[in-house]
Amino acid sequence: MRVTVRLFARLSDLAGTGELIREVPPGATAREVWNDLVLEWPGLGDYEKTISVAVNAEYARMNVAVRDGDEVAFMPPVSGGWDTCSTSS
C-alpha cells in the first residue's frame, strides 16, 4: 500500500523534499514509515526522540497503524508563536 509522507522545516531540508510517496507493507506503523525514511536519509535519525507524528492531519502516536492512502506527517519541535528560543530551555 501507499502513503503520502509530509516532512516539515529542517526535516524537509534533510530529505530534500517536503512530500513523497512511500510503499509500505500492510499493517505498517508510523514508526516503520519513519525508520524507512531514516535508512534513506540518516540525518533524520537526529530527530528520533523529538519528532511528532500526525496521520491525516491529526496528532497520532508512532505505534499507530497506517492505511493505504493516509497522509503521514513527521514534524520537528515546533517554534511558532513568539520568542520561542528564550523560553524553550
Partner: peptide, 28 residues
C-alpha cells in the same frame, strides 16, 4: 501555541539561516 501548534520559523540572519526548534509537540 508555542507548545503544540505545528509552525516553524526559519531565521535569516547576517551570515546564514537556521530553522529554530522549540518544543516537541504533544497535545496530550
Amino acid at each position: 501555541v508555542k507548545q503544540i501548534v505545528p509552525i516553524w520559523k526559519r531565521e535569516h540572519f547576517d551570515g546564514g539561516e537556521v530553522w529554530l526548534e522549540g518544543a516537541t509537540a504533544d497535545p496530550d
